[in-house]
Measured scan of single mutants.
Amino acid sequence: DEETLERIAKELKEKGWTLIVNGKLITDAREALKWLLEEEERR
């Protein structure tokens, strides 16, 4: 759910983690959240 996604995005940002999505590096939590939401919609 959205709360979980926001928590994940926040944790990613705090830890300075990066996500690699389709070979693209995502360092911004907002971008990561946007991607996660798009993935949820596809299901």
Rank of each mutant, 00 (worst) to 15 (best):
K13I: 13
K34H: 04
E41A: 14
A32W: 14
A9S: 06
T4R: 13
E40M: 14
I8L: 14
W35F: 09
L33I: 10
E11P: 00
G16H: 06
R43L: 11
L37S: 04
A29R: 01
G23M: 04
T18K: 12
D28A: 09
E39L: 12
W17V: 03
L33W: 12
D28H: 04
K24Y: 14
I8D: 01
G23I: 09
E6I: 12
D28P: 03
T18G: 05
E3A: 13
R42L: 07
L12Y: 05
K34Q: 12
E6G: 06
N22P: 04
E31P: 00
V21P: 02
T4Y: 12
V21A: 07
L33P: 00
A32E: 02
T18E: 08
W17H: 02
T4H: 11
D28E: 04
I26A: 03
L25D: 03
L5E: 04
I20G: 03
E40T: 10
L25G: 03
R43G: 10
K10A: 09
N22V: 12
T27F: 10
L37K: 09
A32I: 15
L33E: 01
D1W: 15
K15E: 06
K34M: 13
R7A: 13
E39N: 10
L12I: 10
L37H: 05
D28Q: 02
A29T: 08
I20L: 12
E31L: 06
E38W: 10
D28N: 09
A29Q: 04
K34S: 03
E6C: 15
L25S: 03
E39P: 05
I8N: 01
R30F: 13
E40R: 06
T18S: 08
N22G: 11
A9L: 15
R42G: 06
D1M: 12
R30K: 10
E14P: 00
K15W: 14
K24Q: 12
E31I: 05
N22W: 09
L5G: 01
K13F: 15
E11W: 15
E38A: 13
R42I: 09
G23H: 02
K24P: 04
L36G: 00
W35P: 00
R30M: 14
W17M: 02
N22F: 13
L19H: 02
A9H: 11
R42V: 09
D1H: 12
K24F: 13
V21W: 08
G16Y: 07
L5I: 08
E31Y: 03
E39I: 13
A32Q: 04
L37W: 10
G16L: 10
I8R: 05
K15Y: 10
K10P: 00
R43T: 05
E14Q: 03
K10M: 08
A29N: 02
E31S: 04
K10V: 11
D1K: 12
R43P: 09
A29I: 15
K24M: 10
K34W: 05
L36Q: 01
T18M: 11
K24H: 12
K34I: 11
I20F: 05
E40I: 14
T27K: 04
R43F: 11
A29K: 02
A9Q: 08
L5Y: 07
L37D: 01
K24S: 11
K15T: 03
I26F: 11
E38N: 07
I20Q: 01
E14I: 03
E11R: 10
L37F: 07
E31M: 05
L37P: 00
D28M: 07
E38K: 06
A29W: 15
T27W: 06
L19Y: 08
I8H: 02
I20S: 03
V21D: 04
V21K: 02
E41Q: 14
W35N: 01
L37G: 02
R30P: 04
R43S: 10
R30Q: 13
L12P: 00
L19I: 11
E40K: 06
T4V: 11
I20K: 00
T18P: 06
R43I: 12
L12H: 00
L37R: 11
E2F: 11
K34L: 10
W35Y: 10
L12N: 00
W17L: 08
K24D: 10
G23C: 15
W17G: 11
K24T: 11
K15P: 02
V21T: 03
T4I: 14
N22Q: 02
E39R: 05
E41S: 12
K24I: 13
K15Q: 10
K34Y: 06
L12F: 09
E14F: 01
K24N: 08
T4L: 15
L12A: 03
A9E: 12
I26Y: 07
L33D: 00
K10N: 12
V21N: 02
E14A: 05
E3D: 12
E39T: 07
D1T: 13
L36E: 00
K10W: 10
E41N: 10
T4K: 06
E11T: 09
L33T: 01
K13E: 14
K13H: 11
D1G: 07
E2Q: 11
D28L: 10
V21L: 08
A9Y: 14
D1F: 15
I26Q: 02
T27H: 10
A32G: 01
K34N: 06
L33F: 04
R7G: 05
E11V: 11
E31F: 02
A32M: 12
E6H: 06
W35V: 04
L37Y: 06
R43M: 09
E14W: 05
W35R: 15
E38D: 07
G16W: 09
L19W: 05
R42A: 07
G23S: 02
T27E: 10
L33N: 00
E31Q: 07
I26D: 03
W35H: 09
D28K: 02
T18W: 09
L33M: 07
K24A: 14
K24C: 14
E31V: 08
L33G: 01
K10Q: 13
A32N: 00
A9P: 01
T27Y: 08
E3V: 08
L36I: 08
L12Q: 00
E41P: 03
E41R: 11
K34C: 15
E41M: 13
E2P: 14
E14V: 02
R7C: 15
W35A: 05
I20A: 03
